[in-house]
Simulated assay, not measured.
Amino acid sequence: MRRPNILVIAGHDPSGGAGIQADIESVAAQGAHAATVISLLTCQDTTNVYGVEPVTTDFFARCLDTALADMSFAAIKLGVIASREHVAIIADRLKQLPDVPLIIDPVLVAAGGGTLANDSVGQALRAQLFERATAITPNAREARALCDGDSDLERCGVALSQRTQHVLITGGDEAGPQVINRRYSDGQPGQRYEWPRLDGVFHGSGCTLASAIAAQIALGRDVGDAFEQAQHYTWQTLNRAFAAGRGQRLPARTTAFSS
Rank of each mutant, 00 (worst) to 15 (best):
T164V: 04
H232L: 12
N181F: 04
A214V: 06
R163P: 00
S211D: 11
F202D: 07
Q188K: 14
Q165S: 09
N181E: 13
L168H: 08
R221T: 10
L160Q: 03
F202T: 02
Y193C: 06
I213D: 01
Q236L: 14
L160A: 04
Q178E: 14
R192L: 14
V179H: 04
V158S: 05
S151M: 09
Q231R: 06
C207W: 06
W235G: 02
E154N: 15
D173P: 05
C156A: 01
V158N: 07
A175F: 08
D199M: 12
L238N: 06
A230R: 03
T164P: 01
Q236H: 11
P177S: 13
Q188M: 12
Y233E: 03
L160R: 00
L209F: 09
G206C: 03
G176Q: 04
P177K: 08
I213F: 12
Q165G: 06
L160C: 08
G157F: 03
W235P: 08
I180H: 11
A226H: 03
P189A: 05
Q162E: 15
G200R: 07
L238P: 01
A159R: 06
G206Q: 05
L198I: 09
R192M: 11
G206A: 10
V223N: 02
C156P: 03
D152M: 01
Q188R: 14
L219K: 08
S205A: 15
A210P: 04
V167W: 14
Y184N: 02
A226Y: 04
Y193W: 10
A230T: 00
Q236A: 10
Q188E: 11
D186N: 14
R163S: 12
G224V: 09
L209V: 08
D152T: 03
G206T: 02
Q178A: 12
A210Q: 02
Y184C: 01
P196W: 14
A230F: 03
Q231C: 09
T164W: 15
C156I: 02
R182V: 10
R192Y: 11
T234W: 00
I213T: 03
Q178D: 15
V201K: 11
G187W: 06
A159T: 13
A175Y: 12
R192Q: 09
R155N: 13
C156T: 05
R197P: 01
G204L: 07
D225H: 09
A212Y: 06
T237G: 06
L219N: 12
A210K: 05
R221M: 12
F227T: 15
Q216V: 06
N239H: 13
G204M: 09
P196R: 15
I217S: 08
S161Q: 12
Q191V: 15
H232Q: 09
Q216M: 11
Q236P: 04
P196N: 13
G157K: 04
G171K: 00
G157I: 00
W235H: 15
P189G: 05
G172P: 09
Q231Y: 07
